[in-house]
Amino acid sequence: MIAIESLSFDMPGAGKSKRILNDINIHVGRGECFGLVGESGSGKTSILKCLAGQFKGWEGGIAVQGKSIADTSLKERSNTMQMVFQDPYGALHPRHTIRKILNEPLAIKGLPDKAERIHKALKDVGLDESFLPRYPHQLSGGQRQRVAIARAIILDPDIILLDEPTSALDVSVQAEILNLLASLHHRRQLTYLMVSHDLGVIAHLCERVAVMKAGEVVEVVAREDLIEGNVTHNYTQSLLQHAFSRE
């Protein structure tokens, strides 16, 4: 579904450019939930930004559904791939009502039955239509993240990129959103590529995890191996140790 081959990216800076991704190879299968875990500055979010078209000028190959994204525009990809962001405050336009936010993707695509689709997307994320005339600032963090998820699924994409979708939320709300993501994954046969710094969250949702450090993937581990501690790389071991010691 997503094939990333020897992806490298240099962040252009003042004077010298800085290599933030180095020779990344990741393959995500259809319907899989794949995790990227690492500490800040490890480059995990940069991979999503390359996929989402925010970073340009990377080297290597990224293919989505067999088609290289260098050859397709964001508009063509919009039916396949959508994204959920970390900050539920910044991800929704503060001066758009929830109705407008959910209507926008449909209007851009010129799809019929807008009201029906909005109703269904809202229902899928556990909200009802009373939220439609509200503005994002009238919603709680969890509700906002639900709206952001509704916006992502309203075009029926196959892939959703999740950029730390729960790290700005309280733990009890995090549990709800994780449950919602899991059930959507199951119901809609979605493919997830999820970024998180929290091994617990990643292991809860993802079947396979790429552990990243300093712009490189050090290891790709299956969930079972992660839980049992069957990891080979030192860095993964230390991450696991920290995660276990906190429980």
Binding site: R77, M83, G90, A91
Partner: peptide, 13 residues
Amino acid sequence: SDYVVAAQLQGAS
């Protein structure tokens, strides 16, 4: 900002 990125991902001109 994230909402502009989201709009770009939806294919907005």
